[in-house]
Amino acid sequence: MTFKLIINGKTLKGETTTEAVDAATAEKVFKQYANDNGLDGEWTYDDATKTFTITE
């Protein structure tokens, strides 16, 4: 399955995708991506669209 991450950061904005077997796996990938890029914010997830959002 394809999951999307929408980034609404103070300095970084955009989106990225990952292929994962489930939402929990995708969340780990996206949280590592956010950590690697210095993002810290509030996370939301929409199961209907398989989309995570981080807002700083």
Rank of each mutant, 00 (worst) to 15 (best):
Met1Ala: 10
Met1Arg: 08
Met1Ile: 14
Thr2Gly: 05
Phe3Ser: 00
Phe3Thr: 00
Lys4His: 13
Lys4Gly: 04
Leu5Pro: 00
Leu5Cys: 05
Leu5Lys: 00
Ile6Arg: 06
Ile6Pro: 00
Ile6Gln: 06
Ile6Phe: 06
Ile6Ser: 04
Ile6Val: 10
Ile7Pro: 01
Ile7Tyr: 14
Ile7Cys: 05
Ile7Met: 08
Ile7Ser: 03
Ile7Glu: 02
Ile7His: 04
Ile7Asn: 02
Ile7Thr: 04
Asn8Ser: 12
Asn8Trp: 15
Asn8His: 11
Gly9Ile: 15
Gly9Phe: 15
Gly9Ser: 13
Gly9Arg: 05
Gly9Gln: 07
Gly9Glu: 03
Lys10Ser: 07
Thr11Gly: 10
Thr11Ala: 09
Leu12Trp: 13
Leu12Tyr: 14
Lys13Phe: 10
Lys13Ile: 11
Gly14Leu: 14
Gly14Thr: 11
Gly14Glu: 08
Gly14Ile: 15
Glu15Cys: 10
Glu15Gln: 13
Glu15Phe: 11
Glu15Tyr: 14
Glu15Leu: 11
Thr16Ile: 15
Thr16Cys: 10
Thr17Met: 12
Thr17Val: 10
Thr17Ser: 11
Thr18His: 07
Thr18Tyr: 11
Glu19Lys: 10
Glu19Gln: 13
Glu19Asp: 10
Ala20Val: 05
Ala20Lys: 03
Ala20Gln: 12
Ala20Thr: 05
Ala20Phe: 04
Ala20Tyr: 02
Ala20Gly: 04
Val21Glu: 12
Val21Gln: 13
Val21Cys: 07
Val21Met: 13
Asp22Thr: 05
Asp22Ala: 03
Asp22Phe: 04
Ala23Met: 11
Ala23Ser: 13
Ala23Trp: 10
Ala23Cys: 07
Thr25Ala: 14
Thr25Asp: 14
Thr25Glu: 13
Thr25Asn: 08
Ala26Phe: 01
Ala26Tyr: 00
Ala26Ser: 02
Ala26Asn: 00
Ala26Trp: 01
Glu27Phe: 15
Glu27Gly: 06
Lys28Ala: 13
Lys28Gly: 09
Lys28Cys: 06
Val29Arg: 09
Val29Ser: 06
Phe30Tyr: 02
Phe30Lys: 00
Phe30Trp: 02
Lys31Tyr: 06
Gln32Trp: 05
Gln32Pro: 01
Gln32Tyr: 04
Tyr33His: 04
Ala34Lys: 02
Ala34Val: 12
Ala34Asp: 00
Ala34Pro: 01
Ala34Leu: 05
Ala34Gln: 03
Ala34Gly: 03
Ala34Glu: 02
Ala34Ile: 06
Asn35Cys: 09
Asn35Pro: 01
Asn35Ile: 15
Asn35Gly: 06
Asp36Glu: 13
Asp36Met: 10
Asn37Ile: 14
Asn37Leu: 15
Asn37Arg: 15
Asn37Cys: 11
Asn37Val: 13
Gly38Tyr: 08
Gly38Lys: 12
Gly38Asn: 12
Gly38His: 12
Gly38Gln: 10
Gly38Ala: 09
Leu39Cys: 04
Leu39Ile: 14
Asp40Glu: 15
Asp40His: 14
Gly41Asn: 01
Gly41Leu: 02
Glu42Gln: 11
Glu42Gly: 06
Glu42Thr: 10
Trp43Thr: 02
Trp43Asn: 00
Trp43Pro: 01
Trp43Asp: 00
Trp43Arg: 01
Thr44Gln: 11
Tyr45Phe: 05
Tyr45Cys: 01
Asp46Glu: 07
Asp47Phe: 09
Asp47His: 10
Asp47Val: 10
Ala48Thr: 12
Ala48Leu: 12
Thr49Phe: 05
Thr49Ala: 07
Thr49Cys: 04
Thr49Ser: 13
Lys50Leu: 10
Lys50Tyr: 11
Thr51His: 03
Thr51Tyr: 03
Phe52Glu: 00
Phe52Lys: 00
Phe52Met: 02
Phe52Thr: 00
Phe52Pro: 00
Phe52Gln: 00
Thr53Val: 08
Thr53Lys: 05
Thr53Met: 10
Thr53Asp: 02
Ile54Gln: 02
Ile54Phe: 07
Thr55Cys: 05
Thr55Gln: 06
Thr55Phe: 08
Thr55Ala: 06
Glu56Ala: 07
